[in-house]
Design a protein around this nucleic acid. Sequence first.
RNA 1: GCGCCCGUAGCUCAGUCGGAUAGAGCACCAGAUUCCUAAUCUGGGGGCCACAGGUUCAAAUCCUGUCGGGCGCACCA
Length: 588
Amino acid sequence: MNLFRAFQDDVVAIVEKLVKSGSLPEGLDTSRITVEPPRDATHGDISTNAAMLLAKPAGMKPRDVAEMIAPEIAALKGVAKVDVAGPGFINAGLTDEYWHDRLVYVLKAGTAYGASEIGGGEKINVEYVSANPTGPLHVAHARGAVIGDALVNLLRKAGFDVTSEYYINDAGNQVDQLARSAHLRYREALGEVIGEIPEGVYPGDYMIPIGQELAETLGDSLKDAPEAEWIDIFRNIAIERLLVGIKEDLAALGIHQDVFTSERDLVQAGAVEHVEDLLQGRDLLYRGVLEPPKGKAAPEDYEPREQTLFRATDFGDDTDRPLKKSDGSWTYFSNDIANHLDKYERGFKKMIDIWGADHGGYVKRMQAAVRAVTDNEGELDVKLCQIVHLKKGGEPFRMSKRSGNFVTLRDLIEELGENGKDVVRFIMLTRKNDSQMDFDLEKAVEQSRDNPVFYVQYAHARCHSVLRNAAETLGADTLSADKLVKANLKHLDDAAEIEVIRTLAAWPKMVEAAAEAHEPHRVAFYLDDLASVFHGLWNKGKDDTRLRFIDENDEDVTRARLALVLGVATVIASGLEVIGVTPLEELR
RNA sequence: GCGCCCGUAGCUCAGUCGGAUAGAGCACCAGAUUCCUAAUCUGGGGGCCACAGGUUCAAAUCCUGUCGGGCGCACCA
């Protein structure tokens, strides 16, 4: 449960009560009332803006409204004191007992703690990676993969019914070039000297084994055959093999998407004609000529051509967009509309796509198309990922083992050693998705405060280290959550201890806010905060022995503190679960 | 020329559907450590939140314009 939401309900109830008693006028809008933690901790534990919001419509001064509400809040369970401050904030401090109850709640819930119902079981589709099946994944894909996957977990925790999806771009020119590349490697495997690989054809070494396989299974029958005879076969096999590799690359990052949708299958099933019919039926298509882009030099081969255009401007786009090329064939755009319409027809009103920033110019038209084709029922959010600059010790990092001239995802993970997956996942979430970032391979494996992966992992391991130590004298079987939940938590009375619980108690709100904003990076920042307050408490114990977790002379106090330690470990594990990082119990 | 994203401490970045005196880490300065893991800790200095208007009880946050940086700009995918 999100405690702020609970208090928010209480405040709204108080306002309604005051309306009923005639102290406040009727017809007030309570929907914008919030209860939040004050930014400055000296203002208490919770704060509401209710008085400032209601003052104007009620025709009263904010402070007067506040003075009416404040005593009612003071009467709520768990509230220790209430102040009216500033322009009309009502601040409340909560009792230690209230916070102790929160800790009990954490221990009872385990890593499920933080789960929310705000999603209400609503279906939502998250499409990410969707790289062309023309080679192994590289670093540029890693960020979108991690953001997408963490977002999926986050939305699930927030109560949505999430489907994770990969759209396979297996139609069009690129995969034809792939087929040609496979044919070239096939000829090479049959002993031919292929020389320089032509422009546009994929040159990577990863095509060599596919060529060899084709040579073994097909013999030399298609060696000199015209393209039309082999291109379908070569394309299908190459795509299939590369897709297996891509899935392995994703698995190395701990990613297993639910649905892989083939563009080619959709096209063959007539999904694009379906789009055309739908748009036609809504009178959103016409034959027209697109102007060349103004200002900048027009493309050299520009000539006015008539084609089928979609009225994207009716839905907020800057210009109408072609559904068909001038030769009458479908554009990539039209296929992608079919993809999104297909999702909608599978029951997803909410859709999220994770794209690279270089596709930013494509967002408006896709959103316009989704609205058009779903009669404004469907809703597409697009998260753009800015590029990642790989560094090593501050210097740009390049290497090329498996393929042409880019760093593959596998290379990256392997370069980072045993915890490569966890390091990549965490670091990728240490920036907002739309900020550029540097990924320094040296810093990412450093064991220091500078490295958030380590800092958070270490906090978790440190918790378990304490529990292991305590187990030696108290017995491991007495330190489980269901035993520690019965500890006498009254002993947790130091401000630093309460501060830790307060941070634990913020986790459910964090999950909800991050899920609503579609921003998984907030989880990584929260975990860094939590680790920080926990390490802080630990360090206090260094100066003040009375605050150490284990007091050999007082088992009662020790158990209370171990309950807190277990609570911290639980919430860190819960958060790491969301971002897909393994909570290590030992770092040695 | 148009569209989108970004502009917050010396550096890298957070900043909750608008909330109180704008935060963190690094770097810098001054101290601490026979102690459950020193795999450090405490304190301090440092800001016209790019700029100018507007909306609001309240703006880093929303709107308009300007400047600076990135990305994208017929039928490619």
